[in-house]
């Protein structure tokens, strides 16, 4: 059981992090079990549900499938880095305003996938939104209000950019 731990250094939500990890540990486990950041959810540990989605070097990834050492030197963003209650990101505001949140277990991962999309593509067509969140399973909403929330957040972000 005892395995040599490796030193992992990366940037998490803008802060430098140094943590010792097992060679077989996944990024999700580092975030949740070692760093105790519980916004990122554990749903299947097989990359199939999207609940654990984080943004790594600009791309949405399922952190349960990313070996921790792959994050060496990477820039990682989790839901905790997106916004806070008194400073919500337009995506978070839009999810609330559009009623896109139900049980909330998929929500952090869904927002991370949406943010990765909007960071790259400020004006996505509905098909692009659907593709971006196709790996994020939501069993509550039927995705209707989630899509609407992302469309409206994209518009808000474009308007913010223009201002």
């Amino acid at each position: 059981m005892m395995k040599q731990k490796l030193k992992l250094r990366f940037t998490l939500n803008g802060e430098y992090v140094e943590v010792y990890v097992s060679p077989d540990q996944m990024l999700l486990s580092v975030i949740k079990d070692d760093l105790h950041m519980h916004g990122t959810k554990r749903g299947c540990e097989a990359g199939e549900c999207g609940s654990c989605t984080v943004i790594m070097d600009g791309k949405a990834v399922t952190s349960c499938l990313i070996p921790a050492f792959k994050a060496q030197g990477a820039i990682v963003e989790t839901i905790e880095g997106v916004g806070t209650p008194d400073n919500l990101h337009p995506l978070q505001k839009s999810f609330i305003e559009n009623g896109a949140v139900q049980c909330g277990y998929c929500t952090p991962g869904m927002i991370m996938s949406a943010k990765a999309l909007l960071d790259q593509n400020p004006n996505p067509i509905p098909e692009e939104i659907r593709t971006a969140i196709a790996g994020n399973i939501c069993r509550c909403t039927g995705y209707v209000k989630i899509e609407k929330a992302i469309i409206e957040a994209a518009q808000e972000l474009r308007e913010e950019e223009a201002r």
Binding site: K32, K41, P85, G99, T107, P108
Partner: peptide, 23 residues
């Protein structure tokens, strides 16, 4: 009226705790 859900901020920020998060 479609007032905003009381649990929504907890859930969009990741602050809300679920059993799998609980230690």
């Amino acid at each position: 009226k479609s007032v905003k859900r009381l649990d929504a901020i907890d859930k969009v920020t990741g602050i809300g705790t679920f059993t799998t998060d609980f230690t």
